[in-house]
Design a protein around this nucleic acid. Structure first.
Lengths: 342, 342
DNA sequence: TTGAAAGCGCTAACAC
DNA sequence: GTGTTAGCGCTTTCAA
């Protein structure tokens, strides 16, 4: 079965020119309403399906927005993509997604593949790229948006927040509660750039409080899973049994750490205080609930979409849209006296 | 900044014809190695990026594989897409993803949009579609794969399992442990077709055991979140306080139900037995671990990819690839005597 | 191994 | 509101 019905066939069957069929399939074009109705009906009867590939070439518009994310299997990035897709689809734009697997070399390849499809704009996660990837983005001739970060030297637009600065808020929160022996559970420092930023921010904040920051547990290459969080907690307790609080790079590892405490009969927050990052659903539902940071992933996606829609309509100056993550204090760091109903 | 460097420019700069440049960018074509190297170098220096849109039109190949999933934010579907993408990208095929939000009308729109891009194959989640969506798929002239289900009347190929039959295994497991007052927590029966199948399977299995199946809690429209699972558990305990076990439509709702028990001081499994579905990571890490069913989401994706790659190379007869989900018995249904180390 | 001519299925641009 | 002409940037096809 070969697809061979083209506009020409529809035009012939409807008794009009190809151009009129073309117009009938577009919005805001001047076609007599009855003519359009006839054409669309004829097209449907013939089983005609509009061919975007031809339209793309001729009009030099694809209505694609290219996006790279480290992993599809991460609720935070998924939320960003969901917010992005939803807004863009209202504008007739379609997301073209590629995964980098937390690997800059793979990101470079993904970016090149995506640019070949001639997207209207490209969104990349993070602000660190290979030299060639950066050159590709700079020369792409389309809006470039770096997300989930605040790069020191942005390529184009930015929608994100400082992963390092956000950790300061968390350390301040714990220090204010009187905790001093605070550990950090994170991922491989090389691959997970946002995780590395958080760790750096953690260390800076600890130093600012005059606290020692030698309780750093590496939980392996990103993405850090719940299980790896649990294993990291195990290692932490072996190395530093007197730890009072642990800051985890994400809610998933934090939840893993929490379960390890539960298995050992360590009470959270009485015996161990735990914090996460990301405001994943689990943080708000597990027992106790997890203190975390909400970076508003969906809002990031919606802001990016808004930026793209506006920029495509009317090219704009470079925009840096900062998202203000919010500390969510919950059961895992609450003073016990306040814990009646948890 | 306009992208205007074409193959013509590269050809001129390299002193060859456009056709030779075209060949240099393809694999397995006869170009003198040195010529190819020169061309690629010249292209890179000029900042040329291959234009797929033109190639697609002329060659009538896009190397797209279209996929619809209910939601991007679901680890099971994400795993399927990850497995699919990974295998396909090795073959130079790129996934073009669209979300249906558990809505058949939206699925129809997504399918139409995707087909306009002229994909090499299309994968849809589930076996229920609008009449028009089905007609579009049947007339698409490309391989169609229905996944995550075993439709009674498949459109083309199938990679999936029976959601209903799988629940039988779960009910058998609980019945074998002597439980009789077993409830079901699921989603809106209309929208979540796989959830509805599971519920139907649950009811059939209960009847087969001579057990009453009037403990059915509807937790709202899909996707059912952890919170909705917790709320459903709350309602269940209000309506049927003597319930012994509860079968949840997914691990997320099961975990929510578990936390509700924890908040109430109900011990799992001693006071309440809980099961989930999906073998999400959380099921294997929470305390107690959750008895669930592993439908091997990643394997589904890999099988689909394998099917597509083979079918594109050499058109094949309709294939029904059944996946055998596996019961994973864990702490939430284990006899207490066996629970020493949980 | 390389090149020349033709054209994929649409739409921009212009005419009426 | 509708039609005609040309051509988007590649690859198919055929020839050398």
């Amino acid at each position: 079965m070969q697809r061979s019905i083209t506009m020409k066939d529809v035009a012939r069957a409807a008794g009009v020119s190809v151009m009129t069929v073309s117009r009938a399939f577009q919005k805001d074009t001047s076609v007599r309403p009855e003519t359009r109705d006839t054409i669309l009906k004829v097209a449907e009867d013939l089983g005609y399906v509009f061919d975007s590939t031809a339209a793309n070439l001729r009009s030099q518009r694809t209505d694609f927005v290219a996006v790279t994310i480290p992993s599809i299997n991460n609720a935070n990035f998924a939320d960003t993509v969901a917010g992005l897709s939803e807004v863009l689809s209202n504008e007739g734009l379609q997301v073209l997604l590629a995964y980098t697997n937390y690997d800059m070399a793979q990101e470079e390849r993904a970016i090149e593949q995506l640019l070949r499809r001639r997207p209207e704009a490209i969104v990349v996660t993070g602000g660190k790229h290979t030299v060639r990837a950066r050159r590709l983005l700079e020369g792409a001739g389309i809006p470039v948006i770096e997300a989930w970060d605040l790069p020191a030297n942005p390529i184009g637009h930015v929608v994100g927040f400082s992963n390092a600065a956000t950790m300061e808020v968390m350390v301040n929160h714990l220090a204010a509660q009187g905790h001093e022996r605070i550990a950090f559970i994170g991922g491989d420092v090389v691959a997970d750039t946002r995780g590395a930023d958080r760790r750096r921010g953690f260390m800076a904040a600890m130093k600012a409080h005059g606290l020692s920051c030698d309780r750093l547990i590496e939980a392996g290459p990103p993405p850090i899973s719940m299980r790896e969080g649990a294993q990291a907690m195990e290692r932490l307790l072996a190395l530093h049994p007197d730890t009072q609080a642990v800051v985890c790079v994400s809610d998933l590892s934090a939840f893993g750490a929490l379960t390890e405490c539960q298995r050992r009969g360590l009470r959270v927050p009485q015996d161990m205080v735990i914090t996460g990052f990301g405001a994943y659903e689990i943080a708000s539902i597990c027992v106790p609930t997890l203190t975390t940071v909400n970076p508003f992933p969906r809002k990031i996606g919606e802001e990016i979409a808004d930026l793209i829609v506006n920029t495509i309509k009317k090219p704009t100056e470079q925009q840096i849209r900062k998202i203000a993550p919010e500390l969510v204090v919950a059961g895992s760091t609450e003073k016990v006296s306040e814990m009646r109903n948890r």
